[in-house]
Structures are given as structure tokens and as C-alpha cells.
């Protein structure tokens, strides 16, 4: 039986300086903290990170911010980490802010092979200042490009060796979309189970999306 299991150290070698990576999580909930910790141990820098937030000061992705490994962040809510605000003010980091629903749909579109979409969210606001506006059936929309990445780090509850995944309650958040939208997808999981143990009806992310698996705390 094939297995996609690798170590965290092997996983972070898929990320190069200048890579664009997606990282799952809503704050620290559903965030692949072992993979992030391994990335913080590595020498990579100039990362472009697509994630709803950039952790908290010194926690999660906040460690990469503190170590100046992040060149650009794309997400919806960065004010929860004051060190991101400071890095932005000091022009050490670029920020691209998207409404949370636009961001999650852009990732979904990226994984689904779409060229983008028109959304009514943000019309007439600062967020849409440089975006194409179009009126369809009398309603105004702005165009949003899809988001894709070189590598996605996601967090799930259980995987089988094929890479089928299920998630844990509200820790699901952005992870299932990110699993679809990167060239290399690495899932950090709490537990590995045998193929067949997760019912086909329960599987949230089918294995074709998942390239590698690391087990939290595993070697």
C-alpha cells in the first residue's frame, strides 16, 4: 500500500525562498502548527503567505513574521497580530487585504480551475478601489482573481495513508479549499487510520488533492 507519510523536516523542504504558500487556520484554530514550527526552523525567506491571519505575536505564523521570513501576506484579518501592523508600517511586509468570503472563494476558484469571479462584496469600498467593476442585471460587482500557491500547509484531524481527510469541528475553516489550490499539498494530521476506516460518506477532502501527510508530533 502506498503511503504519503513524510516528516515535518522533509515537508518544509518543498518550500523555497520566495515561494507562495497557503496556510490553513482561523487564528490558531485549524492551523498546521508543527509544519509552521519546522518552517520557522528553516532558512527560507521572502515568503508570500495566503492565510486568513498571521497568527499571534510569536505564535503560529506570527513566528515567521517576527523572524522576518514573510515578504507579503494575503488574507482578511491581520490586526490581531500587532507585529504584522508594525512590519507593514516599517515597509518590511506587503499586505493584500480581502473580505473573508472573497478570499475563501478565490482559493476555491483557484482549485476549481476558474479564471475568477464577480462578487458584490466590497463594491464602493476601499477594498475594491483598483478592481474591475461590472454591472450585471442591474447589480454592481467587482472582479476577483483566483488564488493559487506553490505549496499548501493544511491541518486535518484524521488521514488514511492514501490522503483522505476529515477535519475537527471549526478547525475545518480554510483547509479544504487550500487542499485544492496548491501545486504541493501537505496535510498535518492528529491521527493516521487504516484505509477504509473513514467512511466514504464522511471524507471531506478526497485523497487526490493531498500529496504528503505529516503526523502531529510524529517523526
Amino acid at each position: 500500500m502506498m503511503s504519503k507519510l513524510i516528516t515535518c523536516e522533509e515537508a518544509v523542504k518543498k518550500v523555497k525562498s520566495g515561494s507562495r504558500i497557503m496556510v490553513g487556520g482561523f487564528g490558531l484554530v485549524g492551523s498546521p502548527l508543527c509544519l509552521i514550527a519546522a518552517l520557522a526552523q528553516s532558512e527560507v525567506k521572502d515568503l508570500e503567505i495566503i492565510s486568513n491571519n498571521l497568527g499571534e505575536p510569536g505564535k503560529g505564523l506570527g513566528v515567521l513574521v517576527r523572524q522576518k521570513q514573510v515578504k507579503k501576506a494575503i488574507g482578511s484579518y491581520f490586526t490581531s497580530n500587532p507585529e504584522v501592523v508594525k512590519a507593514y508600517q516599517d515597509k518590511e511586509m506587503e499586505v493584500d487585504l480581502l473580505p473573508q468570503g472573497t478570499m475563501s472563494e478565490a482559493i476555491r476558484a483557484g482549485g476549481a480551475g476558474l479564471g475568477g469571479f464577480y462578487t458584490p462584496v466590497g463594491v464602493g469600498t476601499k477594498i475594491a478601489e483598483n478592481k474591475e467593476e461590472r454591472t450585471l442585471n442591474g447589480k454592481k460587482y467587482v472582479f476577483q482573481e483566483p488564488l493559487k500557491a506553490n505549496v499548501a500547509f493544511i491541518k486535518a484531524k484524521k488521514a488514511d495513508p492514501l490522503g483522505n481527510l476529515i477535519y475537527n469541528q471549526s478547525a475545518r475553516n480554510f483547509n479544504p479549499m487550500m487542499a485544492t489550490a496548491a501545486d504541493v499539498v501537505i496535510a498535518e494530521v492528529d491521527e493516521m487510520v487504516e484505509v477504509g476506516e473513514i467512511s466514504p460518506e464522511e471524507i471531506v477532502t478526497p485523497h487526490l488533492y493531498v500529496d504528503f501527510i505529516v503526523v502531529k508530533g510524529g517523526k
Binding site: S76, T79, Y88, L97, P99, Q100, G101, P120, V121, K126
Partner: peptide, 15 residues
């Protein structure tokens, strides 16, 4: 202030 957080505010209001 720098505009670095929007979250779901716009989506909820729109939809």
C-alpha cells in the same frame, strides 16, 4: 490607521 483587517464584515452586510 492602517487598514489591515476586514474579516467577514463586508460579506455579512452585503449578503
Amino acid at each position: 490607521k492602517n487598514v489591515l483587517g476586514v474579516g467577514g464584515a463586508m460579506d455579512l452586510l452585503e449578503g
